[in-house]
Design a protein around this nucleic acid. Structure first.
Length: 84
DNA sequence: CGTATGACGTGCA
DNA sequence: GTGCACGCCATAC
């Protein structure tokens, strides 16, 4: 576990329910504003259910991907009222 | 150390 | 509005 990944997990874990954060925002909060690419890479390798990684979406509003399927991610976000 | 990969972002056709 | 190509950063090999 690298410090960067650890920070990313912390930030993602701190995301309030019903709210979403872009990969850019997470990367910025993690201390690497330009490492949004790495953020996605890290979350992709992460399978810890304690981390609401489904609340992290793309800057353009797209849900992006999910370790359990993009569809599942959409379902979750919709359940939380983030998506219509 | 160098190359390849990926849940991305922005720009341009 | 959609699709493609290039650029960026951390990891894995």
């Amino acid at each position: 576990m690298t410090p960067f990944a650890k920070t990313v997990y912390e930030v993602v874990r701190k995301i309030p329910k019903g709210q979403t954060r872009t990969y850019k925002q997470v990367a910025s909060a993690a201390g690497r504003p330009g490492a949004y690419r790495a953020v996605g890479n890290i979350l992709n390798k992460n399978f810890d259910p304690a981390i609401p990684c489904h609340r992290v979406i793309r800057s353009d509003g797209s849900t992006g991907g999910y370790n359990r399927g993009a569809t599942k991610k959409k379902e979750r976000l919709r359940k939380e009222g983030v998506l219509s």
